[in-house]
C-alpha cells in the first residue's frame, strides 16, 4: 500500500490535515510531520525522512507539503531516503484527501496517488 506524509510548518496543522484525510483514507498510512524541532514553526529534513520511512509499507510514499522550506526539506529527505517517495505538487489539505482516497485502491501506485493528489489543484469551491 502507498503511504502518505503530510509536511507543514506546524505540527498541529500537519496532524489536523492527516486526521481530516484519515476519515476517508481507510487503512492508508498517513504520517504527519512539522515544526522546526525547537518548538517553533518550520520543517526539518531529517524529521521528514523519518516520517517517510514510517509511512512506507513497501509500495512507496507520496509527500504532501505546505510552503517554501517544506518543499526544499522534503526534497532533501527524499534524496537521502531509500524509500521510493515523490512530492505531489498539490494544495496540502485537498491533495492529501484525494491521495488518501486513491491509496485505498488495491491498484494504487505512487504515480496514481500523486496524480490524484495533483488533480486537487483545479478544484473550485464556488
Amino acid at each position: 500500500m502507498v503511504g502518505l506524509v503530510v509536511v507543514s510548518h506546524s505540527q498541529t496543522a500537519a496532524d489536523g490535515i492527516a486526521a481530516v484525510a484519515g476519515e476517508m483514507g481507510g487503512e492508508t498510512r498517513i504520517e504527519s510531520v512539522g515544526g522546526d524541532g525547537q518548538g517553533g514553526f518550520g520543517t526539518v529534513a531529517d524529521d521528514i525522512e523519518a516520517a517517510i520511512e514510517a509511512a512506507d509499507g513497501g509500495d512507496g510514499v507520496v509527500v504532501l507539503v505546505d510552503l517554501g522550506s517544506a518543499v526544499m526539506n522534503a526534497e532533501v529527505a527524499i534524496e537521502s531516503s531509500e524509500v521510493d517517495a515523490v512530492i505531489a505538487d498539490a494544495p496540502v489539505l485537498e491533495g492529501t484527501v484525494n491521495a488518501a482516497v486513491t491509496a485505498t485502491s488495491p491498484k494504487a501506485t505512487v504515480e496514481s496517488v500523486r496524480e490524484q493528489a495533483e488533480a486537487a489543484r483545479g478544484v473550485e469551491k464556488l
Binding site: G42, V44, M72, N73, E75, V76
Partner: peptide
C-alpha cells in the same frame, strides 16, 4: 546545518 536549522536555510546553506 541541515539537521539543526528548521527552515529553508537548512537545505539552502547546509544542503
Amino acid at each position: 546545518l541541515l539537521s539543526e536549522v528548521g527552515g529553508a536555510s537548512g537545505p539552502l546553506y547546509g544542503g
